[in-house]
Nucleic acid binder design. Structure first.
Length: 284
DNA sequence: CACCATGTTCCTTG
DNA sequence: CCAAGGAACATGGT
């Protein structure tokens, strides 16, 4: 579920539901997701604290809380990994099989579930410092990106996944942005022309904004059946409307005709991840 | 059974 | 020290 747009939508969804709510108890069901944070420390820190804000940095969720007793602000840092989800359930509803951490509020409980447990919910700030600029922010300019890409001969698709270059682009939107920019995923980063770099920056912003806009139109129901939870799945499942089908132009479309030129979409593996592209529109 | 999966980190090699 | 490649993490879907 998690690239920048999905995390952004989640933040917008949860922020108003959490603000002002107080944590009554913390239930850790899978210690692994705490990273180096000790379970006892997490409980002690969060119990009695009130959510004041929820923001995002790259693919990280930043929960801000204030504790009346300890009086200093606390940041709870979340990352959804590949399969993490967060949502509120009514107080005594049944928890899902892979609930990793549950924050008990007065009338609800905030569930962080993660089937593969690749995600994290911790008090560690580390990891955030290494992140590159926000792709939708002012610092992510063609000039910045050109300078950053110049230092590497690695394939541009692989560089797009490097969170220290730009924070929040993942495997799906990397393929989508390159397709829209008409750039081969194999192109060495330091061989992009100034024009290509500029177009790529624009397309990255465009594809992420579109995904956020798309997500904003879908009613969220995280607790529901995952097959119906379309927002956080890229599609190709079943009975998709045109609206859903048009969303991703190349991702997971190997063998299907390119929407622009009808050439079959190809799949290749880079850095152990799938890349989808049109061999005609995105020439080496 | 085989292969694939929205992410990140650690290890090895050069 | 750095870049690059690969395995590992853990579970589920097709």
């Amino acid at each position: 579920m998690p690239e920048l747009p999905e995390v952004e939508i989640l933040v917008r969804h949860l922020a108003p539901l959490l603000k002002g709510k107080k944590v009554r108890a913390v239930e850790v069901r899978r210690k692994k997701v705490l990273g180096r944070t000790r379970e006892e420390e997490l409980s002690r820190t969060l119990r009695g604290a009130t959510f004041t804000d929820l923001t995002r940095r790259g693919k990280y969720l930043l929960f801000e809380l204030r504790s009346p007793v300890q009086k200093n602000a606390v940041t709870l840092v979340g990352h959804l990994g590949m399969t993490g989800r967060m949502y509120l359930l009514a107080k005594n509803e049944t928890l899902p099989k892979h609930a990793a951490v549950v924050l008990k509020l007065s009338e609800h409980q905030m569930v962080y579930e993660d089937a593969r447990y690749f995600g994290r919910l911790t008090l560690e700030r580390g990891g955030l410092d290494k992140l590159g600029p926000e792709p939708l922010g002012d610092e992510f300019t063609a000039q910045y990106f050109a300078a950053a890409l110049k230092r590497s001969g690695q394939a541009i698709k692989v560089k797009l996944l490097d969170q220290t270059l730009v924070a929040g682009v993942g495997n799906i939107y990397a393929s989508e942005a390159l397709f829209r920019a008409g750039i081969s995923p194999r192109r060495p980063a330091n061989k992009l022309s100034a024009t290509q770099t500029k177009v790529l920056v624009e397309k990255i912003r465009e594809v992420l904004k579109e995904a956020i806009r798309f997500g904003s139109t879908v009613p969220l129901d995280y607790a529901g059946d995952s097959k119906k939870d379309r927002l956080f799945y890229y599609g190709g499942i079943d009975d998709e409307s045109d609206f859903y089908q048009e969303r991703l132009l190349v991702y997971d479309r190997r063998g299907q005709k390119c929407v622009r030129c009808r050439t079959p979409i190809k799949r290749l593996v880079q850095a152990a991840r799938s890349t989808f592209y049109c061999p005609s529109c995105q020439r080496a």
